[in-house]
Amino acid sequence: MERKTLEDKLTGIFRKIFNNEGLTIIDDLTANDVANWDSLSHMILIGEIEKSFGITFKLKELNKMKNVGNMMDIILSKL
């Protein structure tokens, strides 16, 4: 999958989970930049990404997701 396609699909998931239709994602985006992105909603986001892409993360990989860019790298490595 192309990174751009992934970004578009991921944007849709982010908008749904964080209830924000205007949200756009960039590589440097972190939980601090998005309202309601806390430890509670994070795992719901992770579950939704796994379901949408048919992938499974390891707990260890979650710790490496410091921003959306890292998250996309990990997703791409699994597709």
């Binding site: 430890s39 509670l40 795992m43 719901i44 992770i46 579950g47 796994e50 707990l59 979650l62």
Partner: peptide
Amino acid sequence: YTPLSFVFRKRGMTGVVLSL
């Protein structure tokens, strides 16, 4: 909390509540 909610992540909000 994070390892627990990771285990329960397929359960959505129920998983969050259980982990909390």
